[in-house]
Amino acid sequence: MLRKIDNENMGRSNLGWLRSIFHFSFAEYYNPKNIHFGMLRVLNDDMVAHSTGFDLHPHQNMEIISYVVDGELTHGDSMGNKSTISRGHVQYMSAGTGVYHSEHNLGEQTLRFLQIWIIPDKNGYTPSYGDYRFNWEDRKNQWLHMVSSKAGNAPIKINQDVNVYALELDKGNDISFPVGEGRQAYMVQVEGKSTVNTMELNQRDALEILEEDIHISATEPAHIVILEMKKIDL
């Protein structure tokens, strides 16, 4: 089963320095029918003005992934970590028993990144942080496996049965993605346009996929992120 989510129907916020599109209920956007997709709790498409950002704030018992689309993202936290990543790179943090962190745009251009929160398989993990600078070419017309569970084989491992993939598909190219029995996936059309089975997706649209393989055709250069996970009702 496939269900398209048009970005025009998603939640929105404009604080001046921060413009956000909320895929699920977050902050001032609340829809009781749209709290999560399986263990995927938050997916925000954030645009952060230069020389601004999120000051130090707490998190607990959440797996947090930040995927940069444009610009630079600088992370700092109460564990002493500080790091800056750019387009196509990923920061990840297991908040566990509790941690404070900040996220700022110290660059000259607007920062766009996907802020992803995943509910862990249990509470009480020791907090941890890491980042990974993926080669952009490794997602050209092929799936780049960025995140997996601790039992998986992706470079980034989190405390949940979730796989995160990125793809840049050239116009006119096709690719498939399997979503087998007992699995589900959430696809984000980050940039460009594509046709998925019979559905047309524009930039910032999303697609819920339940136990169904998909076939993607790029109608223009298409930048895509997919989160594939165990099918579960929370």
Rank of each mutant, 00 (worst) to 15 (best):
G88W: 04
Q91R: 10
N81S: 12
R112M: 06
M93L: 15
K122P: 00
K122S: 13
M79G: 04
D55F: 14
G107H: 04
R87Y: 12
V68Y: 05
Q91A: 08
N61G: 09
R87C: 15
Q91N: 09
F54S: 06
E103V: 09
H104D: 05
G80I: 04
G98I: 13
D55K: 13
P120M: 12
R87K: 15
Q60L: 14
G88Y: 00
F113G: 04
T84S: 06
L114Y: 10
Q109P: 00
S66Q: 08
H101K: 09
Q91D: 10
E72A: 11
E108Y: 13
V90I: 14
I65R: 07
G76R: 15
E108R: 14
Y67A: 02
E108G: 07
L56A: 10
H101Q: 06
V99A: 10
E72C: 08
D77Q: 05
K122D: 13
Q91E: 13
W117I: 11
E72N: 02
I118N: 06
N123G: 00
Q60G: 08
S66G: 06
S94N: 11
I118K: 01
N81A: 12
N105Q: 02
Y92P: 02
S78I: 07
Y67V: 07
Q109G: 06
S78D: 09
N123F: 13
N105L: 02
F113H: 11
G107N: 07
T97E: 13
G71N: 07
S86C: 04
H57A: 05
E108T: 15
E108I: 14
L56Q: 03
T84E: 07
L56T: 08
E103C: 02
L111K: 09
Q60C: 15
L114G: 04
Q91M: 14
P58M: 09
G88I: 10
N61P: 02
S94P: 04
I116M: 12
M62K: 03
K82R: 12
I119H: 00
M93S: 06
A95C: 09
Y92Q: 11
M79L: 15
D70A: 12
G98K: 12
W117Y: 10
G98D: 12
T74N: 06
Q115F: 08
T110N: 14
V90E: 05
I118S: 00
E108P: 04
G88N: 04
E108M: 12
G88Q: 03
